[in-house]
Amino acid sequence: MARQKSFADSPCPVGRAVDIVGDRWALLIVRDAFDGVRRFGDFLASLGAARNILSDRLKMLVEAGVLESVPASDGSAYQEYVLTKKGEGLFPVIVMLRQWAEANLFPAGEKRAVLIDRKSGRAVKKQTLRHDDGRPLNAANTAIKRPDAP
Rank of each mutant, 00 (worst) to 15 (best):
28 L>C: 06
53 I>D: 12
48 G>Q: 04
49 A>K: 08
117 D>H: 09
61 L>E: 02
143 A>L: 15
147 P>A: 04
130 R>G: 00
4 Q>A: 09
38 R>V: 02
18 V>T: 13
141 N>R: 02
68 E>C: 08
55 S>G: 12
102 E>I: 07
111 K>R: 02
89 G>I: 02
131 H>D: 14
65 G>S: 07
110 E>G: 05
99 Q>M: 14
14 V>I: 08
24 R>P: 12
35 D>T: 09
79 Q>F: 06
106 F>E: 00
81 Y>H: 04
25 W>H: 12
97 L>V: 07
67 L>Q: 05
84 T>N: 09
64 A>M: 12
66 V>E: 01
51 R>F: 00
53 I>A: 10
113 A>G: 10
135 R>S: 14
112 R>I: 12
72 A>S: 15
35 D>C: 04
4 Q>V: 14
146 R>T: 06
42 D>S: 13
119 K>E: 12
145 K>C: 05
47 L>I: 02
17 A>G: 07
86 K>P: 00
139 A>D: 08
1 M>A: 15
68 E>P: 01
71 P>K: 13
29 I>V: 11
41 G>C: 08
55 S>Y: 07
8 A>P: 03
149 A>L: 03
131 H>Q: 12
27 L>S: 14
101 A>H: 10
40 F>G: 11
32 D>L: 13
67 L>D: 11
96 M>V: 12
107 P>L: 02
5 K>F: 09
150 P>V: 00
143 A>I: 05
75 G>M: 04
86 K>N: 14
64 A>H: 01
116 I>V: 15
48 G>K: 07
116 I>M: 13
59 K>L: 00
124 V>W: 11
58 L>I: 02
55 S>R: 09
94 I>N: 10
148 D>S: 05
14 V>A: 08
58 L>W: 00
125 K>N: 09
61 L>A: 13
103 A>E: 15
42 D>T: 09
14 V>G: 06
19 D>I: 00
13 P>F: 14
74 D>F: 10
54 L>A: 10
33 A>W: 03
52 N>W: 06
135 R>F: 01
119 K>V: 14
121 G>V: 11
12 C>V: 02
94 I>W: 01
31 R>N: 08
71 P>M: 05
45 A>Y: 11
69 S>T: 03
16 R>I: 06
2 A>M: 07
148 D>H: 10
30 V>A: 06
34 F>M: 06
139 A>L: 14
87 G>R: 03
47 L>G: 08
79 Q>I: 04
134 G>R: 12
81 Y>L: 02
88 E>A: 06
81 Y>E: 02
19 D>E: 14
78 Y>S: 10
84 T>P: 14
106 F>R: 01
139 A>I: 11
34 F>G: 05
142 T>S: 13
97 L>P: 01
35 D>A: 03
132 D>R: 12
105 L>H: 14
98 R>T: 09
15 G>Y: 04
71 P>F: 03
147 P>Q: 12
58 L>C: 02
67 L>T: 03
130 R>T: 13
73 S>W: 08
44 L>I: 00
24 R>N: 08
146 R>P: 10
102 E>M: 12
26 A>T: 02
98 R>K: 15
34 F>W: 06
121 G>C: 13
28 L>S: 05
61 L>T: 03
18 V>E: 06
7 F>A: 15
100 W>P: 00
73 S>P: 10
66 V>L: 07
97 L>C: 15
62 V>C: 11
32 D>K: 15
100 W>N: 06
123 A>K: 13
131 H>V: 01
69 S>G: 04
121 G>E: 15
13 P>R: 00
